[in-house]
Amino acid sequence: MQRRALARAALAAALLPRFAIAQSYPSRPIRYVVPVAAGGGADMIGRTVTELWGRQLNQTFVVENISGGGGVVACQNILQAKPDGYALLQGYVATHGTNPATRKVSYDPVRDFTPIGLIGATPNVLVVNTAVPAKNVQEFVDFVKRNPGKISYGTAGQGSLTHLTMELFKQQTGAFMVHIPYRGIAPAIIDLLAGQTQAMFPGLAAALPHLRAGKMRALAITGKTRSPQLPDVPTLEELGFRNFDAMQWYGCVGPAGMPADVVKRLNDTLNTVLKAPELAEKFAGEAVDPQPMTPEQFGQYIRSEIARWGALAKARNIHLDD
């Protein structure tokens, strides 16, 4: 009896520090790493979310921009942090989707992280230069097939979501287009507008100003539903394409091994923020739709994204380490 009592006491002592952390969390500012340079859409999303999130937690978030390697540098930084909830990463489709699918990265996107929750997502939109004589997707596919090797598409870089989405489109249509990778989406759009390339799959937020100005034409978008920003533009899914629910998404993860109670507190408060009208209004400028999830749902979402893009990369022989 005495031995069992001692064992229970030892177990309680071992659990006490973790329980105490969960009960008092957060007691100091939380470092929130955004894996891109300051000033862009992803940075705005991180700063908007953390401002409102901090109010829910009655604590300050300190946003830190760590760019490099398509998010790899930021991921490595977070993996060196204690899994106590005071260091979080804004993971996104590159860090936990397309990069692990197309190249060797110095982390495991599943085992090395604790999923907190999805923040939101925005569709990609199939656009063409206005000189392209196509008003819908079928006309565009016919146009490409009539001009083999003469049509090119721009992307934000090898292995980016803009690249893989077009490769998925090519796979399902059998249409051949020449890939022109750029260092970022902005120069790719400039060349599309100038007629140097004919098509691309930018994020909706990047395309909207040019679509509204009539400088490019939208043929279809990714996602399960039409965008309120482009209500007359069909989704590729409704046109009969498969697996085109793919989106540019943003979420929050921490180092592996975070206490379950801390994860729950973070997820509960994050999901409250995502339902706030104030956040939806600010996200509308980036065409981002808030999407609350449980940690378990978000973890499964990450695994499905890696599987989706990994299968495509294998089928299209896209291996960026070669």
Rank of each mutant, 00 (worst) to 15 (best):
G39F: 15
K215T: 04
S67P: 03
I30W: 00
V36I: 15
P231W: 06
S227K: 04
S152V: 00
P29E: 06
M177Q: 01
A307E: 14
A311C: 07
K282C: 00
G39P: 13
G240Q: 09
A81D: 08
G71E: 05
N317R: 15
G68E: 05
A246K: 12
K264L: 10
P292R: 11
A42M: 12
G70N: 14
R217G: 06
S160K: 06
E139M: 02
R103D: 01
V63H: 03
D112S: 15
V141C: 03
I306V: 14
S24Q: 12
A42H: 14
N317L: 12
L164C: 07
K145Y: 01
Q59E: 14
V128W: 02
T269R: 09
A20F: 01
K82M: 08
L89E: 10
G68H: 07
V105H: 10
P26E: 10
Q196I: 00
L211F: 08
P228I: 02
N243R: 14
A7M: 03
A313I: 13
V128I: 13
L274C: 08
A246W: 09
K145I: 00
R28Y: 06
E51M: 10
V132E: 07
D232L: 08
D232G: 11
K150W: 04
V73R: 11
I116D: 10
L270V: 14
N317W: 11
Q172N: 09
P100W: 00
V178M: 04
V72F: 07
V73D: 07
P123S: 09
G41F: 06
G254E: 03
R217W: 08
L211S: 08
F201A: 06
A13S: 10
L211C: 06
P231I: 04
R103N: 02
H210R: 11
V36C: 15
R242P: 00
G41N: 15
Q198L: 07
L192W: 01
M44G: 13
E51I: 03
T235Q: 14
Y182Q: 12
K215I: 01
